[in-house]
Design a protein around this nucleic acid. Structure first.
Lengths: 255, 255
DNA sequence: GGTATAACGTCTGTTGTCATACCACTTGGG
DNA sequence: CCCAAGTGGTATGACAACAGACGTTATACC
C-alpha cells in the first residue's frame, strides 16, 4: 500500500515561491528590505517572468511581501499582519457561514481571558497607552461618532497585545475587525451619543480593573461589556439581528 | 491632509478577482461547481489571460477555489478551510515570532471552553463519533504511533466542531495543526507507547465528561490535558523546550 | 475458440510556462 | 525641463505538461 512518496513534482512557480520564502525565513531578506526586481529574479531562477510573478503574487497574498508600483517600485518584505485571517473570516461572513452570534461567541472565548492576563502582567506604559486611547475616544465622541467607534475597537486589540501572544493579538484583530465591518454594513442607523458613551464607560471600568491588577474583575467586566455591546447592536439593528441571540450567547447572558 | 479618496484605480486583476468573488458570494457558482476556463473568462472579461490567471491565483490562495489540471481541469469553487490561517501561523513560527508557549497558551484560551460548550450541547451522534476516534487511536497505538497521534489531534478538532461555531473550529484546527507540525519538526525522538496511552486516557476522561454533560469537568479535564501535553513534550524535547515554560503557561500550571 | 479482464496507447481539454512587446508610472540626470 | 532608464502591470501567441476518459490490444481463463 505504501508506495513511493511524493511522486508529483511541484509547480515551478511553487518552487520559486518556496525558495524566496526560505530566504525570508533565513533572513537573507529582512522586513522592510527590497527583494530583487522581477527581471533580476528571472535571471537568478532561469524561469520566465510569468512564473516569477505568480510566485510573488502568492507571497503577497500570504502577507510575506508587499508589492509597490511607481515610487520605489518593487517587492518588499513586510511584517506579518492579521489580514489573511481577517479575509478568511470576511469570506465566511459573505458566504453566510458565520454571523454576529459566532463572532461575539468567539470574542467571549478570547477577550475576557486576555483582559485577565493583561491585568496580571500589564506595565505602566501599557496602562498609559490604554488611557490615551480612552481619552481620545471620549474627545472625539461628540463630533465624530464613527472615529470614536474605531478607537473603541482598537482598545480591545491593545488589551490583547498586552498578553504578548501574537496568536491572541491576530485572532482578536481579525474578529473585532470583522465584527466592526459587519456592524457598519448592516446597521445603517448610527449609534446615538449615549450608546458610544456607554461603551467608553465600560472600557474605563475594564481599564480600572487592569490598573488595579484585579484580573478576575477585568475578566468579568470584559465579558459583560461584550454582551452589552451585542445587545446594543441587536437593539439598533432591529429584529433581523434579534434572532441571532442563540444558545451560544444565552449561555453567557445570565444578567 | 484628507485628499480625494481612492484616486488610484485598482488593478485589472483585482477587479476580475472581485467580480468572480462576488459571483461566488452570490452563489452564481456554488461549492463543487466549475467556473469557466481561463480562455472563456478571457472572452467574458475582455482582458488577457495573464490577468485572469492572477485573479484566479489570488482566489486560490484565499481558499475560495481549487485549480485542477489534466482531465476535468479547471477552477472549482471549494468550501473554505482553515488552511490560510494555518499558513499564517506557520509563517509566524518560521519567522520566530511564536513558539510552543504561545501555541499552548492560545489553546488554553479556546479548547477548555470549547469542551465546556461541547459537554453542554453535544448530541448522541457526536458522542459516537468521538468514541470512534478514541477507539481507532487505541487500536493503532501499538503498531503506528504516528497515526495515533494524528487521530489524537483530530479529537480536539472534533470537540471544537460540536460548538457549531466555524470560527472556533478554524482556529482550533490551525493551532493544533501548527502545534503538531512544530512538535514533529523539533522532537526527533518518538514518544513512547506510555505517553501516547496517557494522552488517549486523558481524552477518554474528557469524553466521559462530555457524555455526562458535565461542562465544568470537561473544561477542567481539557485544561489539565493541555498542560500535561505541554509538559510531556517539554520533557521529550529536553532543555531547549524547558525555557519556553514562561509566565503564560505557569499561570495555569498550579499542579 | 469465446469471453472476461487486465494492461496499454491515444485523445482531449485544460492549466503551466515561455518569449516578447508595450503601457503607465516614477526617478534621476543631462 | 524633458528625456532615458527602471519598475510593475497587461497583452499576445505559442507550446509543454498534465490527468483522466476511452477505445484497443494483449492476456488469461474456462
Amino acid at each position: 500500500m505504501e508506495g513511493f512518496p511524493s511522486l508529483k513534482k511541484p509547480l515551478l512557480s511553487q518552487e520559486v515561491e518556496h525558495a524566496i520564502k526560505q530566504s525570508i525565513h533565513d533572513e537573507v531578506f529582512k522586513p522592510g528590505e527590497k527583494i530583487p526586481s522581477e527581471r533580476e529574479l528571472v535571471e537568478q531562477f532561469q524561469v520566465s517572468r510569468v512564473t516569477i510573478r505568480e510566485a510573488l503574487r502568492n507571497l503577497q497574498r500570504s502577507g510575506l511581501i508587499t508589492i509597490r508600483r511607481g515610487v520605489r517600485a518593487g517587492a518588499y518584505v513586510s511584517e506579518l499582519t492579521s489580514d489573511p485571517i481577517t479575509e478568511n473570516f470576511q469570506n465566511l461572513i459573505h458566504l453566510g457561514r458565520i454571523d454576529y452570534s459566532h463572532l461575539i461567541d468567539a470574542r467571549l472565548y478570547i477577550e475576557p481571558r486576555a483582559a485577565e492576563m493583561a491585568a496580571k502582567y500589564r506595565s505602566d506604559k501599557e496602562v498609559r497607552h490604554l488611557r490615551g486611547l480612552l481619552e481620545r475616544a471620549e474627545a472625539v465622541a461628540d463630533q465624530n461618532c464613527k472615529r470614536a467607534r474605531i478607537i473603541n475597537v482598537s482598545f480591545h486589540c491593545e488589551v490583547a497585545r498586552i498578553t504578548q501572544n501574537p496568536i491572541i493579538v491576530f485572532i482578536t484583530e481579525s474578529i473585532t475587525q470583522s465584527y466592526s465591518t459587519l456592524i457598519i454594513e448592516t446597521t445603517s442607523t448610527q449609534l446615538n451619543r449615549g450608546d458610544v458613551q456607554k461603551f467608553i464607560d465600560e472600557h474605563r471600568e475594564i481599564l480600572d480593573a487592569i490598573i488595579k491588577q484585579n484580573s478576575a474583575e477585568a475578566y468579568e467586566k470584559t465579558r459583560r461589556h461584550l454582551i452589552e455591546t451585542y445587545l446594543t447592536y441587536s437593539r439598533v439593528a432591529g429584529a433581523s439581528l434579534e434572532k441571532d441571540i442563540d444558545r451560544r450567547i444565552r449561555h453567557d447572558c445570565d444578567l
